[in-house]
Amino acid sequence: MREINKTKYLAVFSIATLIFISGVITAQYINKIKLNEFASAQTDLRNYILSLNLQTELAKKYECRVDTIRLTREKDKLGSQLDMLENRLGKKDGDIKSLKEEYSLLSIRQWILFEEIREKCDKKIINIAFFYSNKNNETLCQSQGYVLDYLYKKYPNYVVIYALDYDIDDPALNTFKEIHNITQVPSIVILDKTYHGFQNKEKLEQIVTQEIKNIHIS
């Protein structure tokens, strides 16, 4: 019969547990710091949205002088930051939801402005509104987002994408949906025409290239 040193087991258990708990507390502390960083990032984002809104208002007055590519890039940057924040804090986070609502309104505002610019100032813009959902058809929506992102990167001087959350219940967004008969996700609006369901790369690229040709001919 071999002896067992119970005191040793108890000592090892205590040391290991102490280190483990310290580790967990440290991890939580780091998480808290990260959350504080996110809180400040949220404030920055809010200010950025406000600034972009003002820029859009200003642009209304001087429509034809507006640098649409720069404005699109700024909006795109804002969208990426929002995505990052959403990945970290989760899609259900209250602040994220409210930020996304503000972002959607900004997008609609820009959409209207860019449509006006396109018509009045002969600018080469292809506005694409993309409705997605985090609740329904998530994989299809992600796939559509990926294809649209590809188009944006391939034709950065022409294509402007507005990603809009179908599930946000906002009067302006609901009106936009009604006008363009958006009843399902994913749905895409390109130059006032609505496409329901997933649209593949070939079809979308054909529309975009055709439109680019039209712009050049006109």
């Binding site: 796939s143 990926y146 294809v147 992102d149 590809y150 990167k153 391939k154 593949n200 790369k201």
Partner: peptide
């Protein structure tokens, strides 16, 4: 595969 493996833009 959705973008025909066109890695240049993604």
């Amino acid at each position: 595969s959705l973008i025909g493996f066109d890695m240049k833009y993604t």
